[in-house]
């Protein structure tokens, strides 16, 4: 049972990094995972086409919260064009634990929210 959720993942779940919302963000987007009701709100500040600051207010299962937490660390200083190209593979690698097909939506919720936010807020 234990090996499924490694210590590191659980740590991100219990102490999510960059948790909460930014004021006056350039990007703001909320999304839910209808399967289980996981919710995430992403807020980010952009300078020169790069993420300067990002926060996820994520509520849900360990997988979705840990994914948001780990992403928030990875995404700092990344360019929007890079982020738009990111896909499943990168998130799964980041999580580093086996994700069953049913949980894929949980794992991807935060990245998808950010990508939708970029599209909606910046029209890109």
């Amino acid at each position: 049972m234990i090996d499924l959720y490694q210590e590191e993942l659980l740590d991100h779940y219990k102490n999510p990094r960059n948790f909460g919302t930014l004021s006056n963000p350039d990007i703001e987007f909320s999304d839910t995972n209808p399967l289980c009701g996981d919710e995430v709100k992403v807020t980010a500040k952009i300078i020169n086409g790069k993420i300067q600051e990002i926060k996820f207010d994520s509520r849900g299962c360990a997988i979705s919260v840990a994914a948001a937490s780990k992403l928030s660390e990875l995404l700092k200083n990344k360019s929007l064009s890079e982020i738009k190209k990111m896909d499943n593979k990168e998130v799964l690698e980041l999580l580093g634990v086996p994700i069953s097909p049913m949980r894929l939506k949980c794992a991807l919720l935060s990245l998808r929210a950010l990508q939708k936010g970029i599209y909606q807020n910046l029209g890109e």
Partner: peptide
């Protein structure tokens, strides 16, 4: 503990 995590861990059993 989120229900999804509970279900996933129970599935292991």
């Amino acid at each position: 503990i989120h229900p999804h995590d509970v279900a996933q861990l129970l599935d292991k059993e």
